[in-house]
Simulated assay, not measured.
Amino acid sequence: MSRADRARVGAYGAAVCAAAYGSMKLAQALGANALADKDPLPPHLREQLLARDPLFVASHWLLAGAALVGVIVALATVRPWGARVPRRLLLTIVWTLGAFMIVRSIGVLGFGFVGDTLLLTGVRPTPVEHAALAHTLARWDLLLWSPFFLLWGLCWATAGWRLHRRGSPAGSGGGKAVKRGPRRLADTAK
């Protein structure tokens, strides 16, 4: 697979991950459980989430909308219409999302591969009254959420790398014009 093909897969992968995440958040906003009980949240916030607190419902609507924007941004890195979006803005958004998701998946400060491993091995203590719940959520995060965010972040990074290297989305001519010198007779004979 060529470098351009891998980058295209990254952009479409970011769009698919955004659509999957947005679909889950939309389902939660509409009242479905859709893994809400597996969200790695502190116990008091988890209770509010499962009780469908209006703030959490509103946040799900916002996250579903943000995911839709994410699909559009990811596609803008590979589709010709993406050349209309200022390249620096697109690069900033794509790299920021990629970095955020990769850092979240590593989880040095909380949930993520490092935080979950520290919790499950007993290096990071848990409140005694919530130990079983914390261990369950850490396992879910270690097996589902952290790999998902790592994949999503790597897809964003790959799309950003392609955009950075190509100069414009989909090589659509939206970048800098390339000056060409006069063609030599030997070049035209090929």
Rank of each mutant, 00 (worst) to 15 (best):
A67V: 10
S172T: 13
K190N: 14
C155R: 03
A186G: 11
T136G: 04
L142F: 11
V128R: 06
L144D: 08
L150D: 04
W61F: 09
A186P: 04
L144S: 10
S168A: 15
L50M: 12
L35D: 07
V57R: 09
S168V: 14
P182E: 15
L45F: 06
R6V: 15
T158E: 14
G112E: 00
P86N: 13
L144P: 01
H44L: 10
V9S: 08
V71R: 01
I106R: 04
A67D: 07
D37K: 10
C155K: 04
R79G: 05
R8Y: 09
T158Y: 13
R139L: 15
L143G: 14
A159I: 00
L41Y: 06
L50R: 06
G115N: 02
S2E: 10
F113H: 12
A138F: 08
T158D: 12
L118K: 09
L137E: 00
T158N: 14
R165E: 15
L133D: 05
A138H: 06
M101C: 12
A132T: 12
G174W: 09
V114T: 12
G110L: 01
P43F: 06
L142K: 01
A18T: 04
A4G: 04
A15W: 00
T121E: 07
T121S: 10
G110T: 03
P80R: 02
L144N: 08
G122A: 01
L119Q: 11
G153D: 04
H44F: 10
F113L: 10
V114Y: 11
G31F: 01
V103A: 08
G160W: 02
S105M: 07
V178E: 14
A15K: 02
L137G: 05
A66T: 11
T117Y: 11
W145N: 04
A20L: 10
R87S: 00
L109H: 04
T117C: 08
R104F: 01
H60T: 13
L119Y: 11
L91V: 13
V69P: 07
A27P: 01
M1A: 13
A29T: 03
G13E: 02
R3P: 03
F148T: 00
R180N: 14
V123C: 07
